[in-house]
Design a protein around this nucleic acid. Structure first.
Lengths: 188, 188
DNA sequence: GGCAACATATGATTGAAATCATATTACGAT
DNA sequence: ATCGTAATATGATTTCAATCATATGTTGCC
């Protein structure tokens, strides 16, 4: 149910929270209570610029956690705004900090964090590729095409049209197989 | 000297390694020995596609570590190629795993990892912004402009020309201050 | 001081991806 | 069965960032 490491956290530390669209879970500058796991719905983390301009620093999907770093800081550094109604769970920071004394939790946390860092680095490299064709190819090699082409395109930060065109080109050049409509993959 | 958490690792676990350009530190599929810290030089992590096409999943700079996730896996999932001669330190995985039993190490690791994840998420959001002007503004709000505009542009995955133009536009629109040549910042 | 190298800056041109438009196909609901 | 919605697919047009070109300012070096 919860992402891996937090299985080690006692259920007394889990605070269920429900929110409607537009609700702010916490504000920039608020004292930190802990991190959050999104069960359903979507949450945006926004930083507010000096002139009140908001920009999104993260979009948290159902099944993911956010504000993990708040466990180690005194105040939140952004706003958390609910953009799709749903249910959250807050995990109190004191419990997480205490859990680090348990080597099993610590290793589970370390593993999960290291893998996430690696995956994000790869994403940064991929979205840094300018040519749509190269980016799509890199995305395929990285195994990012699970589900629809539309989702794949969104992950690659490309329009789906550009993604379709790149895929067609790659198929024409024999670098990608297209055994049937909507199915694309590398050779063997 | 070393990034924060690894201060807790005994020096007997630190293996100095020197390499010349083109040397491969490890290959995809090799059994893992541990993670690496780049003291000087640069290292590319490359994944090899099915048709032998290589694509870079990370560029490790001096002062950063790489292959952290190898501590938790049996084999390396990419090649590490030295692209600029320098010195590395390998930290044996067994010592890192053992160190997780020390809550101080575990928390230091957790803090560092959580902050890195947050920073990378923010970078992913920023480089996902299409309009150069908006991207530059987001970069300014995020405090990414330290050092030269050229470095700033590289971080934003923009050409420096586009970055200069966006900065000029932002100054013209009164959103950014340009007190002197080469100096740009937000209002107060 | 003069030179080399680089950062800053901006104009002109080009190219590639976004956008707009339009079919076709697939799939679930009624 | 047919209606509606979303994914797949591709063509036409537009936009905007990359690229090329060029100039000035700044810094360190001999």
């Amino acid at each position: 149910m919860l992402p891996n490491p937090y299985d080690h956290i006692p259920s007394s530390a889990l605070r269920p929270i429900s929110g409607a669209v537009g609700d702010t879970v916490f504000h920039q500058g608020d004292p930190t209570h802990g991190l959050y796991v999104v069960q359903t719905g979507r949450v945006h983390l926004e930083r507010v610029g000096p002139d009140g301009e908001r920009f999104i620093i993260h979009r948290a999907q159902a099944g993911t956690s956010f504000a993990e770093a708040s466990v180690f800081s005194e105040v939140y550094h952004c706003d958390a705004v609910i953009v799709e109604a749903g249910a959250l769970i807050r995990i109190d920071k004191a419990f997480v900090l205490a859990a680090f004394a348990d080597p099993a939790f610590a290793r589970a946390y370390g593993r999960q964090a290291a893998q996430q860092i690696q995956a994000q680095r790869q994403m940064l490299e991929i979205v840094g590729i300018r040519r749509a064709e190269d980016r799509v190819m890199a995305g395929l090699i990285a195994g990012l095409l699970e589900g629809s082409i539309v989702e794949f395109a969104a992950r690659l930060q490309l329009s789906h049209e550009a993604t379709y065109r790149a895929l067609r080109k790659l198929v024409q050049d024999g670098r990608v197989m297209n055994p049937s409509r909507g199915i694309y993959h590398l050779h063997p």
